[in-house]
């Protein structure tokens, strides 16, 4: 494992993890509009089935969203008839191993564990666990960072999962 490079300023080494924690909190708190606002207008969110796929356009993806599709995705979660969100799931995102891989462009790799819980009065409660390596490409923006691209490599991307309505 490479440590944070010595050229990385202390400020960046502190600000980047703080930003990732903030992003995770927005999803855990179901503040989807605020979460979406972290993405640039030309942003892209990718969750591949095959992390070694040579060409995104011709490979299976769990999520392959431009900003408009990401917006539709989170707008849907807030519709009263988004059945998979009833009742609303609770989640806890844990981010660790944050590594700044490059400063220009600003590329960040982190590890993510998500535990989601949904109370089901009518059946067994549902617990869903996700583990992934996440790659962020960030842009420094007047109000902090903006996400230009986010790529989530689930460890079981090639496996068969049950529903995952909320993006990680």
């Amino acid at each position: 494992m490479r440590p944070v490079r010595s050229s990385t300023t202390g400020e960046l080494a502190e600000a980047v993890p703080t930003f990732l924690f903030h992003e995770a909190n927005l999803l855990d708190e179901r503040r989807y509009a605020d979460w979406l606002a972290l993405f640039s207008s030309d942003a892209h969110y990718w969750m591949p089935c095959d992390k070694d796929a040579p060409d995104r356009a011709f490979s299976s993806s769990l999520i392959d969203d431009n900003r408009a599709a990401l917006s539709l995705r989170v707008l849907r979660l807030q519709q009263p008839n988004a059945h998979a969100m009833q009742p609303l799931p609770h989640s806890c995102r844990l981010i660790s191993n944050v590594t700044i891989e490059s400063e220009t462009p600003l590329l960040v790799r982190s590890k993510l564990i998500v535990h989601e819980f949904q109370r089901r009065e009518y059946a067994r409660d549902d617990h869903r666990v996700f583990a992934a390596t996440v790659h962020h490409k960030l842009r420094i923006h007047s109000s902090g960072f903006q996400i230009e691209s986010k790529r989530v490599d689930l460890i079981d991307a090639g496996g068969a999962r049950t529903l995952m309505p909320v993006p990680l």
Partner: peptide
């Protein structure tokens, strides 16, 4: 075709996730 396939065949799909939820509702009780 790829866009269609990803949009409808993924368990993260806004469409399929509701189908999966309803299948489980039916099976549950």
């Amino acid at each position: 075709a790829q866009d269609y396939h990803n949009s409808l065949g993924s368990p993260a799909s806004p469409v399929l996730s509701d189908d999966l939820f309803i299948y489980e509702l039916i099976q549950a009780d």
